[in-house]
Write a protein that binds this DNA or RNA. Structure first.
Lengths: 225, 225
DNA sequence: CGCTATTGTTACAAAATGGTTACAGAAACC
DNA sequence: GGTTTCTGTAACCATTTTGTAACAATAGCG
């Protein structure tokens, strides 16, 4: 399993919690949600391997502030989610050692940016990963996940995929791929490329992502740049 | 005439030099080759309007390093071509102000990518898309869009269009087109050209853009700027 | 206006190309 | 040495591409 930053979401409003979790997942994090302070505390006692916690101040059971020392003790940085304009909570939270706070209602993007910044500061920066649709590619680990679960790519398939990533949005000829994957002096069937592309497409559901360029070769199509 | 980036190739091995120049031309650059340091230096004194230089370290006459100050003085970025494992040269080259180096034997594609990157950094990025009316042509993607949506050009149609673009505003005879698209030794009906032109015109609404030159052939009409 | 030379358009069948599967040799791993 | 995994190749088949021919339309020209 690939190492993704794990984020604890402690928030009693289901709608907000779900929204946050969905966005975290989409951004490539792992999320775990708890809806009251007691459950969260219990969970932390069993497993404290979280990289960051999003903590609502107003909670049923133990409130947010009472969870802070526990989290601080486990060295888990905390971002407080405070109701609008609740300056008292804000100040109290920061004094108690929260890393940051964010006022509800907030922009999801802003939350993600703050999370990224804190993880970076904490040296827990997520591995550099290349995302294409629901697929994450981790070059250093030579690992690929799809929808969060690992996909077993064979070495050559991975190399091939990396070459596509390296030259994304460029039409690569079979000869270029052959030269890039085996070296210039290798003379093999260019059709071998097709087989590898077929295997990658199948495993990653990349039928539209790796486009066939007739008579030429293939091109990895990545929208956002 | 189109403003294409001009690249100076200073390399004594004819085979390598030719190969590089061919690929540069194919990629849409203009290339000028010199086979020893003295000639290159003379040429630079006369005309320094190059956008980038590929410089072999080992050269007859003045060697690569001695040319560096001249090139730097003319603000021409340099990519060193070093023999495999010649780490000393590499370090010396980069310290002397070369933008990049590449170790022989190298992948042509990689060289092209590095060139692209440096030109981009120098603000001399060549147009990655050629626009004609509402049509965008992306040569390295082998893709064409019209009004933002992709138009599926068949391989031969794309090649044909690229030939027109390459020689825009120049009347091309059917024989020239035939030779350029299939190779000189191909003997086919010249009328086949007409069919392809017809198909391109239809797909891109290019009835006025690709003008018929009676008894000769066709010409792609583009208003400069 | 006819006539001719030339170009535009369409349809089609041959050829080329790509997706897929199965498999054998190679490599890696006990 | 035996087993498993990896990977390059060949083969098969469906699809796409494309060259050509045939026919329609147009322009040039007296």
């Amino acid at each position: 399993m690939v190492m993704r930053a794990r984020i604890l979401v402690i928030e009693d409003e289901l709608a907000i919690s779900d929204l946050i979790c969905m966005n975290l997942e989409a951004a490539g994090y792992e999320s775990a949600a708890f809806y009251n302070g007691n459950d969260a505390a219990d969970a932390l006692e069993r497993d404290a391997s979280y990289d960051l916690a999003l903590l609502d101040v107003m909670l049923p059971g133990r409130d947010g502030f009472s969870l802070l020392p526990l989290l601080r003790g486990k060295k888990i940085p905390v971002i407080f989610l405070t109701a609008k304009g609740d300056v008292a909570s804000k100040v109290k939270g920061l004094k108690s050692g929260a890393e940051d706070y964010i006022v509800k209602p907030f922009e999801m993007l802003e939350l993600l940016v703050r999370i990224e910044k804190i993880l970076e500061r904490a040296g827990k920066k997520r591995e550099e990963c290349i995302r294409i649709r629901d697929v994450c590619i981790y070059p250093e680990r030579r690992q690929v996940t799809r929808g969060g679960t690992e996909v077993a790519l064979k070495p050559m398939e991975f190399d091939c995929l990396m070459m596509f990533v390296r030259y994304k949005n460029i039409a690569l000829t079979r000869e270029q791929l052959l030269a890039g994957l085996w070296g210039v002096e290798f003379d093999g069937e260019t059709r071998t490329i097709d087989v590898h592309v077929g295997r990658i497409r199948k495993k990653l559901d990349f039928w539209d992502v790796i486009r066939t360029i007739p008579r030429i070769g293939y091109r990895l199509e990545v929208k956002e740049e």
